[in-house]
């Protein structure tokens, strides 16, 4: 779950890097595929209410567990088959994607904001504050996250808001480590010292000189975190702690449906494929952005 490269790699003697958004022509074919998949998924998520042929929660107890198109007992119009309550899996996948996407995005952004801010402050302020923040980071790393999620959900009840909070807490410590590490390195660099000598405030230094330098590792961490949150959400559903049924998320569909893998595998395989595509696209894009943003590789 951790990509520690940035935390631990030796300080680089590079000047300020500017982050450049790469474009289509820079991409190789795998990245292009990932871009396409990503685009399709985003559009699907945004237009779910128009795309989905059925209400994702509408049950039909007489047509439970019908297989997808092309198999015996296929029920017309239910392309991916029906689930254990006769709901349309295709529609549930679409709505599930929409909600999962939103949850993962919200979770990753919240984590970034909390973790990034703490890291930046710890790096710049230092002293006792830094000690406390890093103590919390160490504590967070040492406590399995499932337990934290479980306790938060138990104490606050399992609503969508709480779920976003739980997913948002996930991974904050990684951002803090990364940002603080970069800040500590940069703060001793000649150009930062020069700025400080010239009378720049810490806030200005943070915004002008430090932020641009941490964008690249943060983007990578963000994509990693996004995928991890998607998986985490399914793990929570496996444990019975996920988003409350009947609401469809990709995670709850695989987590609750897993008992049907031997008998009605489509219930799980369809949403699992969507999860795979989603995380895969995000990972490839993240890695590509990282390579593109890396000065050393670009110069070669």
């Amino acid at each position: 779950m951790t990509d520690a490269t940035h935390h631990l790699s030796s300080p680089r003697n590079t000047a300020t890097k500017t982050f450049r958004i790469p474009i289509w022509s820079d991409a190789n074919w795998i990245v292009r595929i990932a871009l396409l998949i990503g685009l399709i998924l985003v559009v699907t998520a945004l237009t779910a209410p128009w795309l989905a042929p059925f209400d994702p929660n509408a049950q039909s107890l007489i047509s439970r567990l019908r297989p997808p198109i092309g198999f015996d007992r296929y029920k017309d119009g239910f392309y991916f088959g029906t689930d254990e309550l006769g709901r349309d899996i295709f529609s549930r996948c679409i709505y599930g994607l929409r909600l999962t996407f939103a949850l993962a995005l919200a979770g990753a952004v919240i984590g970034l904001l909390i973790g990034g801010t703490l890291g930046l402050m710890a790096g710049i302020i230092g002293g006792m504050f830094e000690e406390i923040v890093m103590g919390l980071v160490d504590a967070q790393i040492a406590i399995p996250f499932t337990l934290i999620a479980l306790l938060i959900l138990a104490a606050m009840g399992s609503s969508l808001d709480v779920m976003i909070l739980v997913l948002g807490v996930y991974g904050w410590e990684q951002y803090t480590r990364i940002v603080r590490g970069e800040v500590k390195k940069l703060i001793q660099m000649p150009f930062v010292e020069a700025a400080r000598a010239a009378g720049a405030t810490p806030a200005r230094i943070a915004v002008r000189h430090i932020l641009p330098n941490v964008v690249s590792p943060i983007v990578v961490q963000f994509t990693l975190n996004f995928s991890n949150i998607v998986i985490l959400e399914s793990t929570l559903s496996f444990l019975g702690l996920g988003v409350q049924p009947p609401t469809a998320t990709l995670g709850s569909m695989v987590g609750i449906g897993r008992d049907y893998l031997p008998t009605a595998p489509w219930i799980v395989l369809a949403p699992a494929m969507v999860i795979l595509l989603l995380t895969f696209a995000v990972q490839i894009l993240g890695d590509w952005l990282r390579d593109k943003a890396d000065v050393r590789l670009r110069s070669r």
Partner: peptide, 23 residues
Amino acid sequence: LLAAQAIMEMWAEVGINGKVNVQ
């Protein structure tokens, strides 16, 4: 859990606004 969700649907049939709460 299946019965709970199905019962919510049956309640909805007669106009009851039910919600499953898993814990």
